[in-house]
Amino acid sequence: MAENIPEDIVNEIQFACQLHEQAVCNHDKCREFSENLSGLLITLEDMEFYRLADRLMSVLLNCKPKEASHCDKANLVGEMMKDITKEVQKVAGK
């Protein structure tokens, strides 16, 4: 990922990662995470950060908020978000 990612986008990705950690056992937070990530995806596509947008799309494809049950893919989504966050921070020099 050799894109010059603005700091506010890096911060939004970090926030989304933290939000997912809170969302694992909380349906409302889970839905908030999904909505937040969807908005971020649109922003990234508008800014033409297509590679990063594709990675977030992969996260969203695995994220399916459920009511009254634990998410089957919480660990997978969490690891995907951590990987994306680390890579974005590395590119941004953080």
Rank of each mutant, 00 (worst) to 15 (best):
L60K: 06
A74D: 13
E45S: 08
T85C: 12
K86T: 04
I5E: 00
G39L: 07
E21L: 10
Q89N: 11
K66N: 13
M1V: 07
D54R: 06
A53W: 01
L19G: 03
A2F: 07
N4H: 10
E45K: 08
D54I: 07
L52M: 03
K86L: 08
Q18I: 04
F33G: 01
C17P: 00
L60H: 02
A53V: 04
R51Y: 12
A92P: 01
V88P: 00
E32M: 11
C71E: 07
E35A: 15
A92Q: 03
D54F: 10
G39T: 09
R55K: 11
C71V: 05
L61I: 10
Q14V: 11
C25N: 15
R31L: 14
E48F: 10
I42E: 10
L44K: 02
A23V: 05
L56P: 00
V91Q: 05
D28T: 12
Q14S: 09
R55S: 05
L60W: 02
C17W: 04
C71G: 05
I84A: 00
G93C: 05
I84F: 02
A23C: 09
G93Q: 05
V24L: 08
Y50K: 14
K86D: 07
D8A: 10
Q14N: 14
F33Q: 02
Q89Y: 03
I5R: 00
F49H: 06
N4T: 13
H20G: 06
G93I: 03
C17F: 11
N26S: 13
I9H: 03
P65Q: 13
F33K: 02
N11Q: 15
E79Q: 13
N11V: 07
N4M: 11
V88T: 00
A92M: 04
V24F: 06
V59A: 05
R31P: 03
K73H: 12
I5L: 06
S69E: 15
S69Q: 14
P6N: 08
D28H: 15
I42H: 09
M47E: 14
N62K: 09
D46G: 06
L60R: 03
E3N: 07
K82E: 08
Q14G: 04
Q18V: 06
K86S: 08
L76R: 11
D54V: 04
C25M: 15
V59P: 00
S34I: 03
M81H: 03
K66R: 14
Q18A: 11
R51T: 14
R51N: 14
S34V: 09
R55D: 07
C63D: 08
I5D: 00
N36W: 09
D72L: 14
C25P: 03
E3V: 10
T85G: 01
D46M: 11
M1Y: 06
A53I: 03
R31M: 15
L60A: 04
K64W: 06
R55L: 06
C63K: 06
F15V: 10
N26D: 15
A16S: 12
S58P: 02
L19A: 05
K94W: 09
